[in-house]
Design a protein around this nucleic acid. Sequence first.
DNA 1: CAGTTATATGCCAGTCAAGGAATGCAGACG
DNA 2: CGTCTGCATTCCTTGACTGGCATATAACTG
Lengths: 106, 106
Amino acid sequence: MSDAALWTALADPHRRAIVTLLLERPRPVGEIAEHCGLSQPSASKHLKVLREAGLVRVRQDAQRRVHALDPAPIAALDAWLEPYRRLWNSSLDALGRRLDETSDDT
Amino acid sequence: MSDAALWTALADPHRRAIVTLLLERPRPVGEIAEHCGLSQPSASKHLKVLREAGLVRVRQDAQRRVHALDPAPIAALDAWLEPYRRLWNSSLDALGRRLDETSDDT
DNA sequence: CAGTTATATGCCAGTCAAGGAATGCAGACG
DNA sequence: CGTCTGCATTCCTTGACTGGCATATAACTG
């Protein structure tokens, strides 16, 4: 269960920003740092955490290290959310039903 | 965007355990503490964080404070996951296609 | 090989969250 | 009103994480 590593990785706002940024396309470290307003060392460290959580993969291109998103671990989160999503949906349903019952004064 | 509070709240394993526990049914603080192997003060603190993230609601019953799960904030997470889920699914699709192509040696 | 670019790492100081023990507080109950 | 129960809050200590800076490392360039 490196589930913990995944949560920890995504708990940080900067790292979520990186992940979101990589959603667009893979990028080298420097570019990531710039876009997220991070120093290069800081970006490197965050990327390390993301790598160890399996969220990011590296491809070496000359001196550059192009980091790409790996969405696979997100599936674990998705699975974790499952039961709550059910609850949430049924709550919405209940709300909808109640709204329907009272909807004559809309 | 108290999105951050939500992530922070769920980043902690104990709090995830509490949330999972409350999935079953609402419970008073003492019960939660016992089930999660937490001291009473610790449980109280974690519940406070969960409350402030909107994940938990309290109903007062005599001296007891019965905490119940509120799955609504989870929707935010779900929304955040959306784009990644797409990617993930398409990756699966791609994998499936590749497996199909090579599936004569199954 | 010397120099430059792109990135990783080590070290340090500041910050913050977590756990434990003790205490405060409100409701129940005789 | 005194007491007990259930929970919240405070204080304190400790460990973890973060950022910055300096430095090491690796790969390209001439």
